[in-house]
Design a protein around this nucleic acid. Structure first.
Length: 110
DNA sequence: TTTATGGCTGTCA
DNA sequence: ATGACAGCCATAA
């Protein structure tokens, strides 16, 4: 495939695997996407994804278990709302207990 | 081609 | 425990 941005697709693929009621960090997704721990690109990929792309971006948090402020206003609030709707409670500080809600994917790849 | 960002992370105080 | 600084790399102009 001559996909110019195949890297993004990998990220999307990983994010899509995140089960409902569970969350993952950018770093984690990056690792699973073979990006080698470069979480930033994950954030950019999600930032660059199109609205018609049904992707559970709201299940992706930063390493602190909190929602990062993105370009779109109110989007962080929406993310929180979506997560709460999936059964992921937030702390007083808007944080999620990653030790409990962190998605534990299996080692894939051959 | 180079330059400038950026939905982060890890370390230090 | 939180707050602040620098670094890595890919994408977009």
């Amino acid at each position: 495939m001559s996909e110019p941005s195949q890297s993004y697709e990998r990220i999307y693929r990983v994010v899509r695997r995140i089960p409902r009621g569970r969350v993952a960090t950018y770093g984690q997704v990056a690792l699973l996407a073979d990006l080698g721990g470069h979480a930033r690109q994950v954030g950019y990929a999600l930032h660059a994804l199109r609205p018609e792309t049904a992707l559970p971006w709201h299940r992706v948090l930063n390493a602190q278990g909190r929602i990062s402020a993105r370009s779109q206003p109110g989007a962080d609030r929406l993310q929180r709302q979506l997560l709460e709707g999936e059964g992921v409670p937030f702390d007083e500080r808007d944080r999620i207990d990653l030790t409990r809600y962190r998605w534990k994917p299996r080692a894939r790849r051959t």
